[in-house]
Design a protein around this nucleic acid. Structure first.
Length: 173
DNA sequence: CGAACGATTAGCT
DNA sequence: GCTAATCGTTCGA
């Protein structure tokens, strides 16, 4: 899909899934002031601060109260590129949104968007091409549940945050 | 109330 | 490949 925030964004090329019974998920230990949005209705933005520095964007998934989400890890920039370059102080297109923190900075994600519906302004979400090859493998930067292959990406995209292991699986979605 | 810990990135080796 | 930067959240005392 194509994700825009205030008209700025691109094609989602990398994501990770997090679920309630998942030790790597913020929702694992139940609702807290930080994670309560994850336990609300689906289709909302869950925004959290990573390492005290980076605002990261997730979409709340599954039924209300479940506590699942998808971390948006990378975009192929297509809209508002000049604005993203300014925000990121970065000219290389491939380094604009290739990682959840970079993406957050490029799209102007802050805590103010936490809990907002992703089908309303300032968000825009639009379906893109179907039938593209998807690779999946281990998630990045976690220490628990490392065996869950819940990182997904558009196969061959140069805009993902890190390469996949050689053994990564592939399927057509 | 204090301390440890990150769903990361940038910069250097 | 390794590490500092940096601060809200969480957990134990």
């Amino acid at each position: 899909m194509t994700l825009l925030v205030d008209g700025v964004g691109g094609i989602i090329v990398e994501t990770e899934a997090y679920d309630r019974e998942d030790p790597a998920s913020h929702s694992f230990s139940g609702p807290t002031p930080r994670t309560e949005v994850m336990f609300g209705p689906p289709g909302r933005a869950y925004v959290y601060l990573s390492y005290g520095i980076h605002w990261c964007l997730n979409f709340v998934c599954r039924e209300a109260g479940h506590g699942a989400g998808v971390l948006i890890r990378a975009l192929q920039p297509t809209a508002g590129v000049a604005r993203m370059r300014l925000r990121r102080q970065q000219t290389d297109l491939r380094l604009l949104c290739s990682g959840p923190g970079r993406l957050g900075e490029a799209l102007g994600i802050t805590h103010a968007l936490n809990g907002k519906r992703v089908d309303r302004a300032p968000f825009s979400l639009r379906a893109g091409a179907a039938g593209l090859p998807v690779v999946y493998g281990p998630r990045i930067g976690i220490t628990k549940a490392v065996d869950q292959p819940w990182r997904f990406a558009l196969a061959g995209s140069p805009y993902i945050s890190r390469p996949f292991p050689k053994a990564a699986r592939r399927e057509v979605k």
